Simulated scan of single mutants.
Amino acid sequence: MGDGRAANKTQPTDQPVEDFVAGVEPPRRQDEARRVVALLTEATGTAPVMWGTSIIGWGTYTYRYASGREGEWMKVGFSPRKAQLSFYGLQDTDSQRQVLDGLGPHTTGVGCVYVKRLEQVDEAVLSELARLGIARGDYDAAES
């Protein structure tokens, strides 16, 4: 891309979200995935889109590095991994970080919130985190 944007490896695709969710294993994780997709779709007010082969995303934003590199990424994302549910865009703003402790059992990584079982978290807090995430604008990012 000649405009200062470097393409991310993970890009939006045309794969139907429903097809992806129908193939999630084990069955318990598939049920959780269906519930999360419905919950995040309602919370964000936007339709889900597959990003790559295993991430479901809602909304997009542009990030910019001081070097001039720019890219686009989902505002809120989710991936039903075997070991845990991975959420993206739920801890990126001050308002989200203030709410995150109320979610229930979870761990965090760089840009991700991990949950082992959906029934252990407060779905109202999950919805609020998604609402706050979808409301974010573009931003300047730190290079890593």
Rank of each mutant, 00 (worst) to 15 (best):
M1W: 00
M1N: 11
G2T: 09
R5C: 10
A6N: 03
A6V: 12
A7R: 06
N8V: 01
N8E: 04
N8P: 06
T10E: 04
Q11I: 08
Q11H: 05
Q11Y: 02
P12D: 00
T13R: 08
P16C: 06
V17W: 09
D19V: 14
F20Y: 15
F20W: 12
V21S: 11
G23Q: 15
G23F: 09
G23W: 07
E25P: 13
P26R: 11
P27K: 14
P27Q: 14
Q30D: 05
Q30C: 10
Q30T: 11
E32R: 09
E32L: 13
A33Y: 10
R34L: 15
R35T: 13
R35P: 04
V36C: 11
A38S: 15
T41D: 09
T41I: 12
G45S: 00
T46P: 00
T46F: 04
P48H: 02
M50W: 06
W51Q: 10
I55C: 11
Y65G: 03
Y65S: 02
S67T: 13
G68M: 06
E70Q: 12
E70V: 05
G71P: 03
G71C: 03
G71T: 04
W73S: 03
M74W: 10
K75M: 09
K75T: 04
P80W: 03
P80F: 08
K82V: 15
Q84S: 12
Q84T: 07
L85Y: 04
L85Q: 01
G89N: 05
D94A: 13
S95R: 11
S95L: 04
Q96R: 07
V99W: 01
V99Q: 03
L100D: 07
L103E: 02
G104I: 09
G104C: 08
H106L: 01
T107Q: 07
G109T: 06
V110K: 11
G111W: 01
C112R: 04
C112P: 01
V113M: 01
Y114K: 11
V115T: 06
V115R: 01
K116L: 04
L118K: 05
D122E: 09
A124P: 03
A124K: 09
A124V: 04
E128G: 06
E128A: 10
L132D: 00
L132N: 01
I134M: 07
I134H: 03
A135V: 06
R136Y: 02
G137C: 05
Y139M: 09
D140K: 13
